[in-house]
Design a protein around this nucleic acid. Structure first.
Lengths: 187, 187
DNA sequence: ACCTTAAAGCAAAATCATTGCGTCTAGCGA
DNA sequence: TCGCTAGACGCAATGATTTTGCTTTAAGGT
């Protein structure tokens, strides 16, 4: 059961929104590393114990906020061909995720996440976007790989390098991965 | 500059060893989540301020210990053929890393790691082991993929799923990835 | 409209993190 | 070998955060 599953309306929802907003505001004002629970609580007009009881600790709260910000806000662009769509999506994904901000969000999402549900949500977002791209391609009559294949061959390598080898990542790498996974689809 | 770069002998080294040992002991006694700096300090016979000054905070200390424990203790077994060697290595890697303990270490290594050097070290360990396997194969006259290819096609997918989709991982998956990266080497 | 109960507020107590200062010792050059 | 010196540690005071018991509020159901 996720942290978002609170009573949908009323005070709880207001508190949640207000705390999330406080995190975002303060993160941009004083920086991600200067955040503390009492600071966030003051800005949100809430007592610290409320945050501790609802989220457990700062990491879990930041994890929640991070997942929210990692949710794609728009469907992938349609360029009329699978190869363009997938390449463009991979480039944009890498660009967003490999930035210092993006990497901080990924780490936060992974961190305060004992059961892995927040991380799973991130993966689900990516799978959803890829599913859209592939479905459109299928409707055009193109042969497409499986979503899982694209995850293994495009998303996973990018994420691995973002997390474990933050150097030397650029759009060329994203393009190459996209091209390789498609090149293998039909001989 | 890594945390291991302390004065190699004498008191500093003793403190480092004693603190690392305290972390490992307490982690298995009271559980990873119950660790605190004062607790570790008491067990190590050291004052908390020593730990704070040397490591900064609990996360960085745990990150150090995690990297140490993620270092492979032995060279990959030699089965006489690349396909067996790589499959066996991937199976063992997944088995170790996908366990709750392994995942905790990976997360710790990623976490308290502002500059990414600890995570880079983990990746380097894997690259080293794979390099050994591939070199042996080359010496036998087998055609081999590049280390980077194996990282992208075998290590990255396993790591991605360990971190983002902890369910449904088994040795079959590791074998399939190993087989696929080799199947593509020479048509 | 009342009742029930999850969630929030409040405040005290406990624990943890930070910092200044004195002491010690490993490593180095004479 | 014998001091130097600078980095590392211990100690203790201070400040901040986290935890907890109890009370109060308000959402959602009857």
């Amino acid at each position: 059961m996720s942290r978002q599953m609170v009573r949908p309306g009323g005070r709880s929802a207001r508190v949640q929104a207000s705390v999330h907003a406080a995190v975002r505001e303060l993160a941009s004002e004083v920086g991600r590393d200067a955040l503390t629970v009492p600071l966030i609580a003051r800005r949100a007009g809430v007592t610290p114990s409320t945050i501790y009881r609802r989220w457990g600790d700062l990491q879990e709260l930041l994890s929640d906020v991070a997942v929210e910000r990692l949710r794609p806000d728009t469907a992938p662009n349609d360029h009329g061909a699978l190869s363009s769509d997938l390449t463009a999506w991979a480039e944009q994904f890498l660009d967003e995720m490999a930035s210092p901000t993006g990497r901080a969000y990924i780490r936060d999402a992974l961190l305060g996440d004992p059961d892995g549900s927040n991380a799973g949500q991130c993966s689900a977002y990516a799978a959803e976007q890829i599913g859209l791209v592939l479905t459109r391609a299928t409707e055009r009559g193109e042969r497409t790989p499986e979503v899982e294949t694209v995850i293994d061959r495009v998303v996973a390598p990018m994420m691995y390098r973002i997390l474990f080898r933050p150097d030397g990542l650029d759009a060329t790498y994203a393009r190459r991965l996209a091209a390789e996974v498609l090149g293998q689809t039909g001989p």
